[in-house]
Design a protein around this nucleic acid. Structure first.
Lengths: 131, 131
DNA sequence: GTAACCTTGACACGATCGTGGTAAGGTTAC
DNA sequence: GTAACCTTACCACGATCGTGTCAAGGTTAC
């Protein structure tokens, strides 16, 4: 059985078991189930979980945002509606983004990066190196 | 001066002045400014604000989500990174979305629609029909 | 010039997000 | 068969979101 249970997956990926369930709820990583209902994380899922961590840290994203991106990708009506709305920006010459927005985003990014750093040492790493 | 000030814009669009400022912060609708710093909403912005309301209600979206979609559209690195991650879903035959996720999203949608309904009657409508 | 409106900034407050814990019960491995 | 692990379902808690209100001060219209 080359698949890890939730606690094993948690240890190799650095996510808590709690968060693995949450991530599944978001539709981001949905492991197979054993006949008894246990989650079974294969190499694909494990890799995905690790890159997810990087994805979030790199751009200061939240899980909900990635979940939303996924939803947009799967729901054509949603995606086109949103894109149409966004593309219809009123004519503004040389669209200079509000400074406010920029610094706001930067602050958010810093907060999230700090958070990531705090979390980094908690990320133990041993157990079956299944990848 | 065929542009409305924030309170006038609020009345014609149904958003509160407070929310118009918030929406601006999100980078979703950024009106011009008078020399003295007053926000000036032109027909384009007003239309955009009205369709924004529809956009949110129709798909049960939150402002932050549209803001995120906008950010993804403007930030190439962000968009491609997220898209790449999403496209690399581990091979799952006939991807059946977790029922849990579905009902969860439905619940959320219902909540937001209910919210929208509650808000609908508060949406007065008089003032300069500038569109 | 003054009344009515606008600006930013702060405090507030319920709802949701991200996370952890715990309880009651089923599954797996040996 | 039993110890160790898993499941779902709750309660909790700080942080952020969406929204309102208020204060101190500048702008606009007449």
């Amino acid at each position: 059985m080359d698949a890890l249970t939730i606690n094993e997956a948690a240890e190799t990926t650095g996510w808590s078991p709690r968060m693995l369930r949450y991530i599944e709820r978001m539709g981001l990583v949905e492991p197979e189930r054993s006949t008894g209902g246990y989650r079974l994380y294969g190499p694909g899922e494990l890799q995905r979980l690790r890159t997810l961590r990087g994805l979030l840290d790199e751009h200061g994203l939240a899980l909900g945002e990635v979940g939303f991106a996924r939803r947009m990708q799967h729901d054509d009506a949603l995606r086109t509606t949103v894109e149409d709305w966004l593309e219809a920006e009123p004519s503004r010459p040389a669209h200079v983004p509000a400074d406010d927005w920029l610094t706001w985003e930067q602050d958010k990014h810093e907060r999230l990066v700090a958070e990531a750093a705090r979390r980094a040492d908690t990320t133990a790493s041993n157990l079956t190196e299944t990848l």
